[in-house]
Write a protein that binds this DNA or RNA. Structure first.
Ligand SMILES: [Zn+2]
Ligand SMILES: [Zn+2]
Ligand SMILES: [Zn+2]
Ligand SMILES: [Zn+2]
Lengths: 146, 146
DNA sequence: CTTGACCCTCAACCACACTACAGGGTTTAG
DNA sequence: CTAAACCCTGTAGTGTGGTTGAGGGTCAAG
């Protein structure tokens, strides 16, 4: 409201965008090395990196993709898709692949949870280790576990 | 049935126990370095490692613990518990800790799955990327995701 | 006896996603 | 002007769970 120089996207230093995205400065430089961020402009005299403010959104994109279970490699591919002007279907099919992977992980963890629960419930919690069904199952194999 | 030399636990070479446990020879030596396996006897002339057959069971213990979500460090602690003659309660409490961790992972993955499903269902799968709700959510943040 | 399969040690390397120096230069507040 | 806070490059280290390779020695079959 006060100043209306909206046309000038005053560039931000690496510290600002890192803080804006809630990550470390080193991580931003790492993302640049790993090609998740394009090489930014530089201040000619100091050599400092100068980022457009939209870079913060891009870093948040990366953070969200990470929270959704995408690796950095996959996230880079998503970002590249946009550059390459591919269509929606490509993006959606990646999301579907990721859903399948996530479900597989969940199923595996639920199997693990069930096995641990059965073992913990069978363990008296007192007494000699020779009677402990948890160690026994680990040593001899559990009927239901595999 | 044929030979009854049961009292002599003829030792096995590293290749045999690795094959018996379904893992690699290098992995067995790695486990020894990481103190998940005690240092085995050696053939005096060749220097070959000589293992009692029960080592295969120990390796399977490790494999099962890994499948149950224990790290190698935690698995070593389980194995050390047995050596240290601690009681059942210690083992059970570790299993409970692990159950809690597994449930947290499951909840996180279910949150991720829900977010991905909402996005994928909203994405038409055809057309321009500018209309893709998946990329839009990653760029601008999704209301339900966080 | 020779060949190939097996074994030895020590060391380096892999992926992943950072993180931490070392050894500088620059900007900014007081 | 000075000192703190920031920035630069480049290299190296973290942790997890192994795998691979070099450069050998040993054992069993033919
Ligand atoms: Zn319980
Ligand atoms: Zn018990
Ligand atoms: Zn779907
Ligand atoms: Zn789409």
């Amino acid at each position: 409201m006060a100043d209306t120089n909206i046309g000038a996207p005053r560039p931000l230093t690496i510290g600002k965008i890192a803080q804006g995205a809630g990550i470390g400065v080193e991580t931003v430089r790492y993302y640049e090395r790993e090609k998740l961020l394009p090489k930014p402009a530089r201040d000619p005299s100091s050599g400092y990196r100068l980022y457009p403010p939209s870079t913060i959104a891009r870093l948040q994109f990366i953070a969200r993709a990470k929270r959704l279970g995408f690796t950095l490699r996959e996230t880079r591919e998503l970002l590249d898709l946009r550059r390459a002007s591919v269509d929606c279907g490509n993006v959606r099919s990646r999301a579907h692949e990721k859903i399948i992977q996530v479900r597989e992980k969940i199923a595996e963890l639920q199997r693990i949870e069930g096995a641990l629960l059965r073992l913990a419930d069978a363990c008296p919690g007192v007494g000699e280790l020779d009677n402990c069904p948890i160690l026994a199952a680990l040593e001899q194999g559990e009927p239901d576990a595999d």
